[in-house]
Structure formats: C-alpha cells, structure tokens
Design a protein around this nucleic acid. Structure first.
Lengths: 189, 189
DNA sequence: CGTAACCTACCGATCTACAGGTAGGTGGGT
DNA sequence: ACCCACCTACCTGTAGATCGGTAGGTTACG
C-alpha cells in the first residue's frame, strides 16, 4: 500500500507545516524545518509539494475542508455551537496561532494567502448573518440586522484570539465571547 | 546644525520603516528597502539603528509616544473620541496595516514585538475599562462590568481592522464600530 | 589663527547564513 | 522493468551584519 503511505506522509507534512507556521508565520517558516519535523530532507518535502506556496495553499485548503465539514457551510451553525467552537479553540492554541499569524501576514502586499482570507471572510460574514437570522429573525434584540451584526461577531472572535494568544491568563476567551452573545441577545447578566 | 539634520534623518527612516513594514511585515521587510526609501545604503541605515530589531523597537516606541500624547494615557478618552479614532484610522490604511501586520506576527514564537504588544494590550484594556466606567459607571446597560466589556471593545476594533484591510469595500468599519457602541449603550437603532 | 585630534555620517567590500529550487541520481516495492 | 519516494550535490539569491575606510565638520590648544 504505497498510496496509503504517501497520503499519510502528506498529512504528516501538513500537520508539521501548521506547527511551523504557528511558530514563525509563513514568511518565517522554512521548508527545511517542516521537513525535519517529519524526518525528511527539504528536497524530499518538495517531492510532495513542489513549492513553498503550494504547501501553504494545501494547508489552507485543508483548513477549509475541516471548517466546512461538520456541517458549517450549507446547514450553518447555531449560536450555541459557535460558543462551543470558541471553547474548542481555547484548547487548541496551536491552530488558533497558525491562522492568526497567517491572517496578520495576509494583509501585507502580495501575500499568497490574501485572496484566500478575503474570500473566506466574506463567506464567514454571510454564514454569521444566516446564523443570526435563524436565531433572531430580521432584527436582533439590540436592533441590528443580521448583516450589520455579522461583522461584529466575526471581529469579536478574531480580536479575542489575538488578546488571548498574547496573554492567555489575561483574557477568558470563551467567557468574553459569551458576554458578547449575551449583549447580542439583550439578556440581563 | 548637524544634530538637527541627524534627528530628521532618523525620523525619515522611521517613517520609511513604517511603510515597508506595512507592505511586507517585519520579517518580510529588509533593511535595504527601508534604506533605499530614504536614499541611504543599508549600511548607512545601520549607522542610525545598529540592528534590524533596534529599528523595530524605535518604530514601536514612536507609536507609543504618538498614542500616549493627545492625552490618552492618564486622562483617557471618552467613547465618542474612540469613535473618531476609528474614523481617523479608516482614512489611514497605512498605519492600520503596519500595526495589524505586526500584531499578527507578534503571536509567533520569539517575535521581538511580542512583549510590546502583550503589555500594550493589558494597558489598552485597562484604558477601555476606565472609559467605560466613566461613561456608564459600574454596570453597562447590557449588564456587563467595564472590565468584562473592555476586552470586547478592544477585540471589535482589531477584528474590524482586519476585515476592513482585507476588503475595505465589504466592511464599513466606522459604521460597524458605531453599531457595537450602540449595543453597549443598549440604544434602540 | 592655525593645525592637530577627533567626531559624525556615511559608503564599498565582504562575510556568513540560510532559503528556495533544480538536476540527477538510488533503492525498494510491484 | 519500472516507478515512486526519496536523497546528495549544487546553484542562485538575499539578508543581516562587520570592517575599514573617507569626507567634512568641530573642538582643543599652542
């Protein structure tokens, strides 16, 4: 079963790339250090992914697949599932760090992940709007439409991640996110 | 007046560094490209800032000075001044991009700006809490304490910046921020 | 006043260290 | 016999940093 072994290798490489990108960002990551982590030479790695950028694209695609599986894309989430997602993220600093680092880099000129993130955020906002509409209808308790609240919801998730990554002990990410949801719901504390 | 000329040069260099970091991030920025922008060689630049990291530190310090002048530090802002700040930022994509790129990078291991941002965010949250307390007292209309709302306020500002940088036409940053403030205030739309 | 000593603001050459990528193998499984 | 999964060797480019200048101005002092 050579084929299976090969697929396994690719998965190993992607996992290692995720780690290295988390540690050093995309620009700071080197093929050599990714290769080393899976017991390959840099050139051996290039056998699987012909360029550094191809590796990045594969990483992003996998993230996409992971995101859209679990029923997010069409079916959508519900608000309480978002809450669990944040809790889940709080236990996986590695993944959060990878994508926060990439997001930060991606706003620089000509970054290979820029288009990916641009499209992704458009889609995420649309998803968020759907979730909110499902939960609240055309007007949230605070008076916003789902479309107006969606960028805020997205921003809170991302912004909290940065604060939490910089100092996990200073920010209770899931707690703060719940606070925000309460704000959206217009609940009393 | 050799001294004055020198100070001017340093200021030029810092401005150029800000630009280059916005375009390529810190890791992607090169001393040569910064130097070129002010009509120096790379070695000439190193005469003013002995290492790349020293240059970054100087950039961050200047930002700090800029931030804390204008009466932010002790006296604090008020909520409506925050609103103007966001509007102001929306007209200065360069600055926003520089610090968003740096923030993103700074969560990677051993990044020279990491400590700076960690401390800075602690301070920003404290400032935000003060602003909120000044405006609302110990309980905001939504029921949160100033300390609980501060990370959210901060997160919204940062998160919106990323969405806006990726696609300015897709996000009305000042508008969205006002929406959030309305949520905090518990106003009807 | 003049000149020697010194300082400031640079530049050219060069070193070291990778980084990404190419070319051309080799060896084991099918 | 063949091909997939690698490796060795190597090339090219680039980045940060050091070294040793040089030109021009400044200061100290006889």
């Amino acid at each position: 079963m050579v084929r299976a072994r090969s697929e396994e290798r690719r998965a190993d490489i992607l996992r290692a790339a995720l780690e290295v990108i988390a540690e050093r960002g995309y620009r700071g990551a080197t093929l050599g250090s990714v290769a080393e982590r899976v017991g390959l030479t840099q050139q051996g790695l290039l056998h699987y992914f012909p360029t550094k950028e191809a590796l990045l694209v594969a990483v992003l695609e996998e993230r996409d697949r992971w995101d859209t599986s679990g029923g997010r894309d069409r079916e959508g989430w519900r608000l309480d599932l978002l809450e669990s997602l944040v809790e889940y993220n709080a236990m996986r600093p590695g993944i959060v760090q990878t994508f926060s680092a990439l997001l930060g880099e991606s706003v620089t000129d000509g970054h290979p992940a820029r288009e990916f993130f641009t499209e992704r955020y458009a889609q995420v906002r649309a998803n968020m709007a759907d979730v909110l509409r499902l939960e609240f209808g055309e007007r949230l308790p605070g008076g916003l439409t789902p479309e107006r609240a969606a960028p805020l919801l997205t921003a809170v998730m991302d912004g909290l991640q940065y604060q939490w990554l910089l100092d996990p002990s200073a920010v209770d990410m899931p707690g703060a996110f719940r606070d925000f949801l309460r704000l959206l719901r217009g609940d009393a504390p």
